[in-house]
Design a protein around this nucleic acid. Structure first.
Length: 494
RNA sequence: GGUCGGGUGGCCGAGCGGCUAGGCAGAGGUCUGCAAAACCUCGUACAGCGGUUCGAAUCCGCUCCCGACCUCCA
């Protein structure tokens, strides 16, 4: 069921028909987290976005190799200290203990958000040799120079020779050139301010360091992704993804490194997710405008009035397009929570209702068009909010079937069965949503509830309203909602 | 300052030349013992000013705001 899809390519700044390098196969690399502290929500939104992309590509029949790295070395802070080292020193730990702790935490969170694990999750520290080899290749090609044991990428030379530097992020080479005259003098080792380290000589007290032909040191900030994507996906692969904020300098430098070593553009399509905002501003740890996933789940934060379940949050992410900013507010989350519930309730009705109408029904067309439309929306650069809106359009029909406001002969068995199948494919397999908590009750709870509902019905038949209402109110306090339908009474967790 | 992306009804958020987005909230109605749920109906939104066009929220120009990146960040 291969479908033709379109993706927005950051490199060309337009939507393009997606054509994989090898028919039927896709190589996708997504920049993963730096594991020096707990994941924050913005990371989660990005990884949920790529999770949906990964799921959809698989759903439409591609065999996808999804590589997402773990960065456990190589990110310098202002003072020149490595993030991992800093975290280690603060807590008196081995750097690898820090990495391990937060890697586990990251994985837990990804599971909570119901994201599929990538096929390969390489670590930067496990690929020092590959990185050293890449530095060597770049040196051999003349796009890097050695200074005091460190190796720098020569952006000016690269820009002059290839004209590539700055293409992704829209930076202009002329500016780089003009800039150089003023800034040249204050550069110690770098020849040009835009040059960046691909190998750094380590100081004595630096914790994470390795032998190399140039010095005992560590790889540069952007090198890992170049080396690891090449190793697992080849010199040229289909999709490279990451957060918008990585475009420059990270991705720009990644491209430079790949081209500097092998001469080819690493990925055909560059996909960037936009930022998660909170109250209109980028969510960021450094300025306090942040809420951790756990705080969001528990409601333990001044930014929310209550907790929201992971699936509600996932649904909330999906309600905006991955290339748009998404503004997280308490009000928006409440709206998402209700909407998500409505969708899930409709799903339950869909599961439990059988329609046997032979031939065609007058509503078939609407139903099939909406479902087909939802997939067409996904084909168009993974437009999840639009696809979701199609599902919502079908909710009144589904609910009306249950309430018998629409009779079953209005819909054919074929259309209904198709709806069932596609609905769940989209919601569960592609969007990666699932029932929250214990709301899908089984075991004794369901039986107990049946009994209670039956007793209440007896009271109602006897017009014993006090008893009937007491049952309802008490259940309400227990977060269980009683819904009196025309034919039967159902229940759900609040 | 440079680069890029935005400003859509009370809120969130799609659409990006002609056709109802959708969710939440709100109003009215149906159903109901009451309530909830559900269903039906409704608001006539596209920052401002010009321009292009038979026709613009959608294209162009200007103005005003906002955000991101340019330093580690998904």
């Amino acid at each position: 069921m291969q479908r033709q899809i379109q993706v927005y390519n950051s490199l060309t700044r337009q939507k393009e028909v997606f054509t994989p390098l090898h028919e039927g196969f896709i190589g996708m690399y997504v920049c993963g987290p730096t594991v020096y502290s707990d994941v924050h929500l913005g990371n989660c939104r990005t990884f949920v976005s790529f999770d949906v992309i990964y799921r959809y590509l698989q759903f439409i029949g591609y065999k996808v190799r999804y590589v997402r790295n773990i960065t456990d070395v190589g990110h310098l802070l202002d003072d020149g200290e490595d993030r991992m080292s800093k975290g280690a020193k603060q807590n008196n730990l081995e750097p690898m203990e820090v990495a391990q702790k937060y890697t586990v935490g990251f994985h837990d969170m990804m599971r909570i958000f119901n994201t599929l694990p990538p096929n390969i999750e390489p670590r930067a520290t496990g690929h020092i040799i590959e990185q050293i080899e890449m530095v060597q290749a770049i040196l051999n090609n003349g796009y890097a120079y050695i200074a005091n044991g460190s190796v720098y990428f020569d952006t000016l030379k690269f820009a002059e020779k290839t004209g590539e530097y700055g293409r992704l992020s829209g930076r202009v080479i002329d500016e780089l050139l003009a800039e150089s005259r003023d800034n040249l003098k204050n550069q110690d080792e770098k020849r040009h301010p835009s040059d960046f380290a691909i190998w750094m000589k380590a100081s004595e007290e630096h914790l994470m360091k390795w032998n190399s032909p140039w010095s005992v040191g560590f790889p540069g900030w952007h090198l890992e992704c170049s080396a690891m994507s090449t190793k697992y996906l080849g010199e040229h692969f289909d999709i490279h993804g990451g957060g918008n904020d990585l475009k420059f300098p990270h991705h720009e430098n990644e491209i430079a490194q790949n081209m500097g070593s092998c001469g080819c553009q690493p990925a055909t399509y560059w996909l960037h997710t936009n930022m998660l905002l909170m109250n209109g501003k980028k969510m960021s740890k450094s300025d306090g405008n942040t809420i951790s996933p756990v705080e969001l789940f528990t409601g333990d934060s001044p930014h929310v009035t209550k907790g929201y379940s992971p699936m509600v949050v996932r649904f909330f992410f999906l309600q905006s397009h991955y290339r748009s900013t998404n503004d997280l507010t308490d009000e928006a989350l409440q709206a998402a929570e209700k909407g998500f519930k409505r969708l899930m309730e409709a799903g339950k009705i869909l599961t439990s209702t059988v329609i046997d109408t032979a031939g065609e029904g007058p509503l078939d067309k609407d139903i099939l068009e909406a479902m087909e439309g939802a997939f067409a929306d996904m084909d168009d650069d993974f437009n999840t909010p639009r696809a979701l809106s199609r599902l919502f359009e079908l909710v009144p029909i589904i609910n009306s079937i249950k309430d018998q406001k629409i009779s079953k002969d209005q819909i054919s068995k074929t259309a209904w069965d198709t709806l069932q199948e596609k609905w769940f494919h989209l919601l569960f397999d592609v969007f990666g949503l699932m029932e929250d908590t214990a709301s899908a009750a089984n075991g004794p709870v369901d039986g107990l509830m049946q009994l209670i509902i039956e007793l209440r019905q007896q009271a109602r038949d006897n017009k014993d309203w006090p008893t009937s209402d007491k049952i309802r109110d008490t259940l309400q306090e227990l977060e269980i909602v009683i819904k009196d339908g025309k034919e039967e009474t159902s229940w759900t967790f609040k």
